[in-house]
Design a binder for these strands. Structure first.
Length: 464
RNA sequence: GGCGCGGUGGCGGAGAGGCUACGCAGCGGCCUGCAAAGCCGUGUACACCGGUUCGAAUCCGGUCCGCGCCUCCA
């Protein structure tokens, strides 16, 4: 099985092989800046690279996944100034909420989750190194990376220096030698977070942490670096410049992967338009698994219009799968299920999750038609293993069907005891052939989001 | 202005020179006291205009529309 991944460096799909089999597969993904609640656009890369992490884990014996937390940034400073809150309080709270939200989306934790503020020393070492090697210079309390010192600057994004300057909308700081130079270190006032350094009291530029931390946890060169497409320039371009010039290497990461942009309800997400869904608010309305599936229904590189209708659609789909799994609750699996070949093939084709989901539906269709109306036939153990094996790599279908159907997303849902009581009442009415009463009870429950199903083995219920 | 991505059936969404996925919704049927779930059947769509080709949604040229990035970003 050959894994093919689209590499932003070449703009093509390439066969993936680890750089160093002994070190395993090493992947770095840009994580959140913890100044505000995660929105759905922040969740897309987390979910996408979570699938990749799961896939790599099934293909290779060892995978190391690093995702940073940016906890020093001017947006955080601005937030603190605005609310009067302590910076540490903001970053701790936001990071905790991020973790909770991402866990609700069924994402696995990375192996390392380094924070920028814990790696100031490593960043300072890198700055000193870049100055020494002639790639960076000091000016008015700043340290700047000298873009002209690097021949291949702009390779990732396809920009060249002249174009960058021609289109610039921000006025060029006077202390820069070249308009395209970017900051490695900048001075802080007493109000702002800062650290002592050879270049005065200050703080790092925002690209530097990823260079320093990926080096610390993964090495000078590693396999995969991921993030949102908006990070290609300048963030990743600058990371490459810092790391390669500091280490004297030809590459920083072999594969650069970028997920596409997200819109919300047909418009670009913006706070002023009020179409800015946070993961947290969506979780109050939909199960996390449905939100996850809604994200995976679109290929990761495609632009995506994220809608509540899309989540509702995803929830309907999950209902079908969990219905089948509920019917097979008594079927025991001997072994840990493997990923079905057709699912693996789809995912190995640059993480084609929509294709994989299509194959998953095919498995369900085969199962359901084998069960037919007359009951059970076919190799149920094999079907269940396929559904769960596919679900595992996609991060879906792993919960107990009972929990899926009976779990609540809202506190004012009818409680189980009340539902059971009404079902008992209705059962009696049906036994008495009092179908008017029977149907009334069913309608009442339906109004409260509870659907009844009369089967051969009695009446079951589920929430919609 | 520069660089890049995209426009597929009512909706979502793969694919990518001939075999025309998949899902949701709809419609007809089976099952059911009636439902629900499930099953069976049912839809020749690829922005527009040219071109290449025996054949194009897929390749080439142009047009229109949407979106992103263009440096210490909001």
């Amino acid at each position: 099985m050959v894994l093919k991944l689209h590499n932003t460096l070449s703009r093509k799909k390439e066969d993936f092989t680890p750089l160093d089999a002994d070190k395993g597969v090493r992947m770095y993904v840009c994580g959140p800046t913890v100044y505000d609640t995660a929105h759905i656009g922040n969740a897309r890369p987390v979910v996408v690279f979570d699938v990749l992490f799961r896939l790599l884990n099934s293909l290779y014996p060892k995978v190391t996944y690093v995702r940073n937390i940016t906890d020093v940034d001017d947006k955080i400073n601005a937030k603190a100034a605005e609310t009067g809150e302590d910076i540490r309080t903001i970053t701790e709270r936001t990071a905790a909420l991020f973790h909770a939200d991402m866990a609700a989306l069924n994402t696995l934790e990375p192996d390392f989750e380094p924070r920028a503020t814990d790696h100031i020393a490593e960043m300072q070492v890198m700055i000193a190194d870049l100055i020494e090697k002639g790639f960076a210079y000091e000016a008015e309390g700043h340290v700047l990376f000298s873009v002209n010192a690097m021949d291949e600057y702009g390779k990732l994004s396809g920009h060249d220096r002249d174009q960058i300057i021609a289109g610039a909308r921000v006025e060029v700081a006077p202390y820069k030698k070249d308009a395209a130079d970017f900051v490695l270190w900048k001075p802080s006032t007493g109000e702002e977070p800062g650290w002592d350094s050879d270049w005065g009291f200050g703080r790092p530029g925002w690209h530097l942490e990823c260079s320093a931390m990926s080096n610390k946890y993964l090495g000078q060169t590693f396999d995969i670096h991921g993030g949102g497409q908006d990070l290609i320039f300048p963030h990743h371009e600058n990371e490459i410049a810092q790391s390669r010039c500091s280490h004297g290497t030809d590459i920083m990461a072999r594969f650069w992967m970028h997920n596409g942009y997200l819109m919300a309800e047909g418009e670009k997400m913006s706070k002023s338009l009020g179409n800015f869904y946070t993961v947290n608010e969506l979780l109050g309305e939909f199960p996390g698994e449905a939100i996850r599936l809604a994200l995976l229904k679109t290929h990761y590189r495609q632009p995506m219009d994220f809608t509540k209708d899309g989540i509702a659609d995803a929830k309907t789909i999950l209902n079908k799968f969990y219905t089948a799994l509920k019917k097979m609750a008594g079927v025991q699996l001997e072994n840990e299920p493997d990923i079905p070949t057709e699912i693996l093939n789809a995912l190995c084709e640059d993480l084609n999750t929509p294709k994989a989901l299509s194959e998953l539906h095919q498995i369900l269709n085969d199962l359901n038609s084998s069960m037919g109306t007359s009951g059970w036939s076919g190799d149920l153990e094999s079907f269940k293993a396929k559904l769960l094996g596919a679900g595992k790599v996609l991060g879906l279908l792993q919960q107990d069907p009972e929990d899926w159907f009976k779990g609540t997303t809202s506190a004012d849902d009818l409680d189980e005891a009340a539902i059971e009581a009404l079902i008992a009442e209705r059962l009696q009415a049906r036994a008495d052939k009092d179908f008017a009463t029977s149907d009334r009870i069913r309608d009442e429950l339906a109004e409260q989001g509870v659907v009844l199903e009369d089967g051969a083995e009695g009446t079951t219920w589920r929430r919609v």
